[in-house]
Amino acid sequence: MLIIMYLHSVKENYIKTKQIEESGFIKRLEERDQDAFKQLVNEHKDRVYNTCMGFLRNPHDAEDISQEVFIQVFDSISDFREDASLSTWIYRIAVTKSLELIRYRKRKKRSGFFDALNSLFNEPDEEPDVSEYMHPGIQLENKERAGILFGEIEKLTEKQRVAFTLQKVEGLSYQEVADVMELSVPAVESLIHRAKENLKKQLYSYYQQNELD
């Protein structure tokens, strides 16, 4: 019992120390301290890039959006309210920006008629084909299956897609996903459960339509 209480107090002290350290770090960022900004970028760049890759599956888009994320952090660090951790806030920005790009691409696809009309008079836009790209961390033998799975993930609702991607691709815990999505843990569990069920159904009909060898 005493050991548990001791461990609990150690944990609380650690959290408090972390919060104080983070507050000081945020103050340095607000003062436009270049070293602090460099430290922030180096600490979070891979996770931000990986999150963006999980949604966008295109290294160029992921790089651009990752840069946009850090530019927004640089610009609006004074808006950070410290009700979540800095890394959660950065994740939120990364998810929002990735989704914004996906929505923009979808809108663009819908306005295909106007694009076709536009391309009669102008050079057509070079939009990368997402299906050509793959998350670089996928093992070679799983590439084809992962491509099919990513295709089906895109058909999920936005919330299910975000929760599933953050948990499966980024490897976040349910609690971390809940923090990023500003939802409760049970809500995230439910979203991921429904996402898995829907994916199974979608994959079943996919394999029904595409006869197995």
């Binding site: 290294p59 996928i138 992962a146 099919i148 197995l212």
Partner: peptide
Amino acid sequence: EVDKTMNALEGLEPAKTDPFFYSRL
């Protein structure tokens, strides 16, 4: 096949930026 595809993301290595990311940013 569905089960295998559902597990296709198991052991996924995280994607990483190159060392010049901060310079470009």
